[in-house]
Amino acid sequence: MALPPEQQDIDRPLSHCKPGDRVTITRLSSPYVASMATRLGLVEGCTVTCQAVVPSGPVVVRRGGMELAIGRAYAAEIMVKKTHSAMEALV
């Protein structure tokens, strides 16, 4: 039996996340977003927690002590997948 799409291990944009999701970044699409995100510490393979999603607005993610609001257009260019184990979350 196939799992519903949100439970599968497929990449999806950060803008599709729900508050409380722990996700791992898999790809940063545009070079501009990638440069900005790299400075802030969001790189491929790092794990963030989705803190809040403003309806048709920004996604707020947390990593350590950093809380970052990412506008919807940028969040759509950051591909993520759900993090499952606690070990993965520590990376």
């Binding site: 900005m36 707020v60 002590g65 809380e67 970052l68 609001a69 990412i70 940028y74």
Partner: peptide, 9 residues
């Protein structure tokens, strides 16, 4: 450009 904003506690 879009938003990328640090939220202080």
């Amino acid at each position: 450009s879009g938003l990328l904003l640090d939220l202080p506690p």
